[in-house]
């Protein structure tokens, strides 16, 4: 059962990733990317990393995709024209991608051979995370060991927001 879900999710992720590149309209590419992120989140969930899965959905599939869509909207992709000169370089990129993909496949094959060790290590991490799961571990380090850096980060973000407001508002007034 787990294996079927895994292959289903993996196939969805890879197909969606290929679609991101192949789609002729940027908006479709962006939508395909969301599907890819969703499938990856499912894979994280299977690995027992519920928190990362949730963050993947909220941050990547949510916030960052909204940002992408905004940029696409502002840039108006319909006006973008495909130049034939760009297409000439396709074989070069295809070759580069093929080399990279082969390397990844070789690495994957290597892992396959050591599959037994791999699953063992995953099981090990799951046991160590305790009853509350990894969120508890995360909360412990975030609000106990790293409490002060966590709070100072919020000041850092506050300063950045304030700075953005100061600089843009001045710019607006001078115009």
């Amino acid at each position: 059962m787990t294996l079927i879900v895994f292959y289903g999710l993996a196939a969805t992720a890879v197909t969606a990733a290929i679609l991101v590149v192949l789609m002729s309209r940027v908006v479709y590419s962006a939508l395909a990317l969301i599907v890819c992120f969703g499938a990856t989140a499912g894979l994280f969930f299977q690995l027992g990393a519920q928190f990362i899965a949730a963050v993947q959905v909220i941050v990547y599939a949510g916030a960052i995709m909204v940002l992408f869509l905004f940029v696409i909207m502002l840039l108006d992709p319909a006006s973008e024209v495909f130049l034939p000169s760009r297409l000439k370089r396709v074989p070069v990129f295809a070759l580069a991608c093929a080399v990279l993909f082969t390397l990844v496949l070789l690495e994957a094959a290597d892992r396959w051979a050591a599959a037994q060790v791999f699953t063992d290590s995953i099981a090990g991490t799951e046991r160590s995370s305790g009853p509350g799961g990894e969120i508890e571990t995360l909360a412990h380090s975030l609000f106990r060991d790293y409490l002060l850096p966590f709070e100072v980060t919020s000041i850092l973000i506050l300063v950045a927001v304030l700075g953005a407001v100061v600089l843009t508002r001045q710019h607006h007034e001078t115009e």
């Binding site: 100072v152 980060t153 850092l156 300063v159 304030l162 100061v166 710019h171 001078t174």
Partner: peptide
Amino acid sequence: LGLEVLSISTYILAGFKER
């Protein structure tokens, strides 16, 4: 983090005379 809080504040302050 301390360095970043200091730096980001000073980046903005250095450009305060936007005009």
